[in-house]
């Protein structure tokens, strides 16, 4: 027994060491960002590698971040846009995924193949045609222009379809016997059953669109609709020049909701996984 346990503990040590190095690599920029947000301009300009500020300047940086630009407004825009995108994506993806996974119809596999094909089209490739289309529709520079292109998430349809495939047919038949309509089955049976997958998809979707810089930059011209990444960008070019302290404070503020969402979703995710009752 002894050599085995010694082996496995040294193996564990190795695994943890690798993970620790990896996590340092990933977390270090964040640590630097947060540390910088508390430092004074002199501290930052000194160029020394220090985690803790010599002089606490946090309040001033955060106050500056919140007052120099309407950061809260940008964040509210971000919430409106990402929440609408995710809600509409679910509204489209769940019925589609249900039809693709559980209903029998002619051409289903072809349609699914086309959907998979759409996964290959990068959004940047169609950005210009969509821009022109929105120009003709006259909806540039609006919430609609930020939300509409993302409402159909091919990835979401694919992910939900794969999950729905694992839901037993008997459950759907039982729902039909009980008198639940097909749409009712999607929302009242499949959605609660697929909560872990919905959560996973939500994490992807919210992070992608909260952090999206490319599309808002193209369609927006008025600052009223700016999303957080654009807001931070305006910060850098504001008349004060490069002020890293407030800039990092702003970056910390706009990342905070993502971190919070993720932590909350993570708990839900684990709950979701223990959510079995079929087998």
């Amino acid at each position: 027994m002894r050599p085995v346990s010694a082996n496995s503990s040294s193996g564990d040590l190795f695994k943890h060491a690798v993970l620790a190095v990896g996590s340092i690599f990933i977390l270090l920029p964040f640590a630097v960002m947060i540390a910088t947000s508390f430092k004074s301009p002199a501290d930052i300009a000194s160029g020394a590698l220090r985690l803790f500020p010599t002089e606490y300047h946090g309040f001033a940086n955060y106050a500056e971040a919140l007052s120099a630009t309407p950061l809260l407004r940008y964040m509210a825009n971000g919430v409106i846009v990402t929440a609408s995108i995710f809600a509409l994506q679910l509204l489209v993806a769940l019925p589609c995924a249900y039809a693709l996974a559980k209903l029998k119809w002619r051409g289903r596999d072809t349609v699914f193949g086309l959907i998979l094909f759409c996964l290959l089209i990068p959004p940047h490739a169609v950005a210009i045609p969509v821009y022109v289309l929105f120009y003709w529709l006259g909806i540039l520079d609006s919430y609609t222009s930020l939300i509409l292109p993302w409402t159909i998430s091919v990835f979401g349809i694919f992910l939900m379809r794969q999950f729905f495939k694992t839901v037993p047919d008997d459950l759907i038949d039982a729902a039909r016997m009980d008198g639940i309509s097909e749409f009712g089955i999607v929302w009242r049976v499949m959605l609660p059953t697929a909560l872990p997958a919905v959560t996973a998809f939500g994490i992807f979707s919210i992070i992608a669109h909260w952090n999206d810089y490319f599309w808002p930059l193209i369609v927006l011209s008025s600052e009223d609709y700016y999303t957080p990444p654009l807001g931070v960008a305006t910060f850098r070019t504001a008349e004060v020049g490069y002020v890293f302290g407030p800039l990092m404070a702003a970056a910390t503020i706009i990342i905070a909701p993502l971190v919070l969402t993720f932590l909350l979703a993570q708990r839900r995710f684990i709950e979701g996984i223990t959510f079995t009752g079929m087998k």
Binding site: P168, D170, D173, M177, T193
Partner: peptide, 20 residues
């Protein structure tokens, strides 16, 4: 008639209870 309108009840092999 749709399944629910036939007023039949079915018990499935996998029980098919709503897990949530």
């Amino acid at each position: 008639l749709r399944p629910s309108a036939r007023n039949l009840a079915m018990v499935f092999q996998s029980y098919a209870l709503y897990p949530h």
